[in-house]
């Protein structure tokens, strides 16, 4: 897919909460092997944080780098599966906080872990069709992991926002994208349930790998590229193993994945996952380098984006905190504190 007008990303910003719980501590509590864990540790939102507060900081950081008047935004779209309200948009709060109201479109998007890239895909279409000069898309989650479930080791918190605007102002030029979806029930959360359910190993081959590899190959075919032509490749990262296996299937060199692979340090930020990885890559990429970003959302589908970094990246990169600053700011908590912060103790 391509837009009518040339567009790109003019600002980006990420946020990760400061609290961390080690996977070995989760394993200790549930009597599992503390060595055979999916990631080293995961981020935990503080008691006063939620998807909305995380989105607000990511949005502010995006605006700092874009250097635009918030009123010039035509949309604020928040992709998440951990909305603070079941009914009432998170996006209107974010739009009000950044001073972008009232002449703006605002909405929350949902598609499990690809809700953020779904919003980004929409933002490229919205700006690329000429309906708005700029649009802000955010992927964010404070993911819910059921106590003792396999996903508790990785369900983390964080997010990243991206402002789409004209190509001539962009720090990364949009070259094309692709969306690939099927009805594949590998992970879900029913109404009024606190925690999601999943189909264990079914989340692998027919779900994550099928959608990620097909979406990537199809977009690359459209653009006349190979996945390994890119300088950086970011995959949705529910753990460390899946993105590395996807890279191998697609013939992508391991070292191209490492700069955007953040899940070993903060876990899976769900709708924020691939977008936090994209922010990490923009923190280090040089002008002229190419970036491939692939999301995955259960239910199921993948969005894929192709970018080329421009000279503007060097001007705007230091206008907001980089991802490393947030990942490096860590306060370790024990399982009891984590259980309290995440509302796992029901009285």
């Amino acid at each position: 897919m391509k837009t009518i007008k040339d567009v790109g990303i003019v600002g980006y910003g990420a946020y990760v909460p400061m609290y961390r719980i080690k996977n070995s501590d989760i394993a200790r509590v549930w009597g599992n092997d503390p060595v055979r864990v999916p990631v080293k540790e995961k981020s935990v939102p503080g008691p006063d944080e939620d998807a909305c507060t995380i989105a607000c900081e990511a949005a502010k950081n995006s605006l700092l780098r874009a250097g635009i008047d918030p009123h010039s935004l035509g949309a604020v779209w928040v992709g998440t599966e951990s909305k603070p309200y079941a009914v009432k948009p998170t996006a209107t709060i974010v739009a009000e906080v950044i001073g972008a109201t009232p002449a703006i479109n605002a909405a929350d998007w949902e598609f499990a872990c690809k809700a953020g890239t779904e919003a980004l895909q929409g933002a490229f279409g919205y700006v690329g069709s000429g309906m708005a000069p700029y649009a802000l898309a955010i992927g964010v989650d404070t993911a819910q992991g059921q106590p003792a479930d396999a996903l508790e080791y990785t369900a983390a918190a964080g997010g990243a926002g991206f402002i789409v605007g004209p190509a001539e102002e962009s720090l990364a030029h949009y070259e094309g994208s692709y969306s690939f979806v099927t009805d594949t029930p590998d992970f879900w959360r029913r109404q009024h349930e606190h925690y999601p359910k999943h189909a264990s190993r079914f989340t692998g081959t027919p779900a994550y790998f099928y959608h990620v590899t097909n979406a990537t190959r199809r977009m690359c075919d459209e653009l006349g590229k190979e996945p390994n032509d890119y300088d950086y490749v970011i995959f949705h990262q529910p753990n460390t193993k899946f993105p590395m296996a996807a890279a191998k299937m697609l013939g992508v060199d391991k070292e191209k994945v490492i700069p955007g692979l953040i899940s070993p340090y903060i876990g899976n930020t769900y709708a924020g996952s691939s977008l936090v990885g994209l922010a990490a890559v923009f923190d280090v990429a040089s002008p002229g380098e190419s970036v491939l970003c692939v999301s995955y959302g259960s239910g199921a589908g993948s969005d894929v984006f192709s970018f080329t970094v421009t000279e503007k990246i060097t001007e705007v990169r230091d206008k907001a905190p980089n991802l490393k600053s947030y990942v490096g700011r860590r306060l370790e908590i024990d399982y009891a504190t984590y259980a309290r912060y995440r509302g796992k103790i029901r009285m």
Binding site: D50, C52, P84, P321, S325
Partner: peptide, 14 residues
């Protein structure tokens, strides 16, 4: 849910 400003120590930049 009521949101509002709080203050935190300045984020160290890395």
């Amino acid at each position: 849910i009521v949101y509002g400003y709080k203050f935190r120590p300045i984020l160290p930049r890395m």
